[in-house]
Design a protein around this nucleic acid. Structure first.
Lengths: 144, 144
DNA sequence: CCAATGTCAGCATAACTGACATCA
DNA sequence: CTGATGTCAGTTGTGCTGACATTG
């Protein structure tokens, strides 16, 4: 085994949460919202947010965000309405159902974190979050 | 911002490494080996390994592994030869070029980790690795 | 006959680039 | 005109399931 490298470990951890959340939502009788979809919810503010703004907050392209939002609209969890202040803007907001599912998903994620704390230790989990929350800066080496 | 949740943070961190490694390989004049491909290299042992064994080590399906291996074979970084001991087994090994690229990739990853240590602190990085290396157990809640 | 191995085909998710119409 | 926004189309990477022939 020698030593797993960091990127692999990160990917594994991410997949752990992905699977666990999907399973938890299924067990709770909800649509299996993915982490990616939850990320959209998390970036929304109550007043309505444009796709372009969402993409900036999430750090992905407008097109990727657009696609994710469309999927959630089809699921009935988001809806879009024209912005009276500007005809080219669309305000994206959660539906009632969207709010409900979002609350369930957040609760499940919190529960999973507690479960994990019980397995690897609360201190380790806090350190994990601290390290990940730090500013990593741009991913490009100064190169040369 | 309130509080980013853990799965998102993990995904962001993973993407940070992905981009950084791709960029570093490009800057080094190498083919942009991905983290996933590097994972295959890391799971190989010198004597030759079957796809089925690789998949067990990596924790993904035989089929996914097969696909990743085929891509690396097409790139000329891996090659397969029949196992004299058993006609249904194929031993996968690195080519010369594969070894070379693997060494470069490992070195770049190590350099990125050092760079990161300089940005978020060596202690934080060690704690990060410790938390991720711990046994998280199966991703399924005891549900009920 | 059973299990392991390799493989083919198809699908899902989540990202990307490129192109383009519309509107401030 | 320029730039921001939304959107369509196509591609890639990486995982999955199902099915199947071959072999031990």
């Amino acid at each position: 085994m020698t030593e797993r490298n960091l990127p692999q470990l990160l990917g594994d951890a991410r997949r752990w949460f992905d699977e666990a959340l999907a399973e938890a939502m299924r067990a709770a009788g909800e649509k299996p919202v993915t982490i990616g979809q939850q990320a959209v919810f998390a970036a929304l503010d109550p007043g309505g947010t444009t796709v372009a703004e969402l993409s900036r907050r999430m750090g992905v392209t407008r097109q990727s965000t657009h696609q994710a939002v469309q999927a959630l609209v089809r699921l009935g969890l988001l809806e879009q309405s024209p912005d009276p202040a500007s005809a080219r803007r669309l305000r994206t907001v959660m539906t009632e159902e969207g709010h409900r599912v979002d609350r369930v998903a957040r609760a499940q994620i919190a529960r999973l974190e507690e479960e994990l704390a019980g397995r690897i230790g609360g201190a380790a989990l806090r350190e994990l979050r601290r390290a990940l929350s730090a500013d990593w800066g741009p991913p490009f080496p100064e190169d040369a």
